[in-house]
Design a protein around this nucleic acid. Sequence first.
DNA 1: CCTTCATATTGACATCTTTCGAAATGTTCC
DNA 2: GGAACATTTCGAAAGATGTCAATATGAAGG
Lengths: 116, 116
Amino acid sequence: MKVVDFTETTPALCCTPLLQVTLDEDQAAELADVLKALADPVRLRLVSLIATAADGEICTCDLPALVGRSQPTVSHHLSILVKAGLLEREQRGKWAWFALRRDRLAQVSDILVNPG
Amino acid sequence: MKVVDFTETTPALCCTPLLQVTLDEDQAAELADVLKALADPVRLRLVSLIATAADGEICTCDLPALVGRSQPTVSHHLSILVKAGLLEREQRGKWAWFALRRDRLAQVSDILVNPG
DNA sequence: CCTTCATATTGACATCTTTCGAAATGTTCC
DNA sequence: GGAACATTTCGAAAGATGTCAATATGAAGG
């Protein structure tokens, strides 16, 4: 069960084979939700921008220009990533800062890794 | 460039950090296409069924019953997975057999892995 | 070639997604 | 509290997606 439970908070080990267990419908739906959150060009760019930012976090204020989308659209995409547990949001004064949850990305990654 | 080019055929090393490079629009669109192919519950179940099958491959004939979808729907999902490079199709007599391209799954997985 | 069985394609429909402008909410500072 | 700015929510339009029944295509064996 552990191998398909990617909702746990402890980071999974790297290269743990995961698709050796057939996913049931609930597990598949849960994993699909996280992958859907990642499976959009704008959201991937947001994630990579945050991942490569100086301190692993970034202020929303610059993002609309960086991804070429309106501010409401960027807000929408960020909320999807937060809801999927892939980003963390922190309010600092007027601005909102977003940080990547690398442990969560690693969990998704592990599920896809094939047995070594 | 290598770190974001997941279309190459050689399997990427496990745990190579990948999101240290900001994706441009083309790279993001390309990666999103592969993730979209995975981001569906039925397709995830198909992938996991094939991954856990006896010889790493499975005959289409049983799949509609296993995932609870009609034959055309399963055929549709399989073609999406093949087009994304995640499955390989082989015709054997009347039946079509599908095998998982684990190298390709590993590439996608690596892109999501954070630096160790 | 003609039948039979396996798979793919087509057409149609309902649902979900992406996107933006406009309006609402939240936060700071005076 | 009110002005100013940042962010979210709302409403709507255009497009993409999942699904199945019906039909077409492909392969095997007489």
